[in-house]
Design a protein around this nucleic acid. Structure first.
Lengths: 212, 212
DNA sequence: AGATTGAATGATTTGTTGCTTATTCAGTCG
DNA sequence: CGACTGAATAAGCAACAAATCATTCAATCT
């Protein structure tokens, strides 16, 4: 009776136009209202005017709906970060700073605002380790873009750009999952990120890659 | 009847010579055999030939015994790391590398070998956040030592050494609590630490601190 | 035939009960 | 009197029962 095929890309976010989109929208509302654990598949199904069993024709399971929500959110953020990387009239170091500070502030506020988001993040991270890798991989691509442009402009001197991007992620890990480790206030975190970034930038700018 | 006063420093580790030391030794044996949760105060007391109530004249509570054990362990490690910092015939960068790699390998092996240690670490970290700060603070002092010597030798150009030490800790956080985040093998972690360290070292060596 | 349902199933969560154990402290001991 | 004990308390935890819920699938519908 109802169509389910989307003409958009694999991870595209559709806002209620396809059935999958409708399910995601309904689940999102419930998850952020009552939490992932307290939302039942039956509720989501009835919100969409269908039976619980029918949900499984669109998603393999509950967790996959949560993953779809998270994917859409991160894709929005990735788009914004790609925007930072492509700003005109900014140096590569500035772009890098914009990207990392945005990341810190976004997740900090998102998790501050709502413990439900935190719950979803924890569940997904626990059950789907590959999801975290997907995010890191995509952000790394943006970092490589910045490093490449910085190299072309003579701002950075980096040999292996992909590896370096990985190291930047490694060194700024603390700021990607702020409240997981530190219980620090946002302004302390910003101060620290600034410090780490200065150190890294000096390293990236230096002509000598690394002695034996 | 029995003496309890120690003539050593506040956090000194005594090996069964004082009563506190005897308690710590007995608890350590049980904790590492059966785990923190499965060890009762009554057992520790009877190992020491005293009543459960009497333990409380020496420690405020069970967790404080665990903390004393952890403190002694970390003091041993700190002493070793101070040793690294004071090696003769090594450059400051090399000392820094020795210190960080030792930290990574020590905790990795300790946690790998024995889940009991992991349990104790988790409990202490959860209930006594200040303990983690004490460790960081002490290690930071060693880092400052290295940075100062590096500065004197013309190997590093760093203005605020204490702040820089904090940033180094921040950037290498991932390697201090290896299996908490990553599930990476030791050799992958070592490779990553090496990469991050190269980046940081380049930054520390550079003459230009940081442009506006 | 393919889409959809909803009762059946088994896993997980919740609630409850009784026991174990950290901690205290009135009392004993030397 | 201060060192020490061990029963008393209450906090936390394990074990079990009941209920809930994700997931499946035989049957129904269009």
């Amino acid at each position: 009776m109802a169509l389910q095929k989307s003409s958009m890309g694999e991870k595209g976010s559709d806002r209620g136009e396809t059935i999958k989109g409708q399910i995601v929208a309904a689940a999102k509302k419930r998850f952020s209202h009552f939490g992932y654990g307290k939302t039942t598949m039956a509720e989501v199904a009835s919100d969409c005017g269908m039976s619980p069993g029918n949900l499984y024709r669109f998603f393999p399971g509950k967790l996959d709906i949560a993953e779809a929500i998270a994917t859409a959110d991160f894709e929005k953020r990735l788009a914004q970060q790609r925007g930072f990387a492509r700003q005109t009239g900014k140096s590569a170091p500035e772009k890098l700073a914009d990207l990392l500070f945005d990341e810190l502030r976004s997740t900090y506020h998102q998790l501050e605002k709502d413990p439900r988001v935190f719950e979803m993040a924890r569940v997904i991270a626990a059950e789907r380790p590959s999801f975290g890798n997907w995010i890191l991989e995509n952000q790394r691509r943006i970092l490589v873009e910045i490093l490449e442009e910085g190299g072309a402009q003579g701002e950075f001197y980096v040999r292996d750009k992909l590896f370096t991007a990985e190291m930047i992620q490694s060194a700024t890990m603390k700021f990607h999952y702020p409240q997981l480790f530190s219980q620090l206030t946002l302004s302390k975190l910003e101060r620290e990120l600034d410090g780490v970034l200065q150190l890294l930038l000096t390293g990236l700018r230096a002509r000598v890659p690394a002695p034996a």
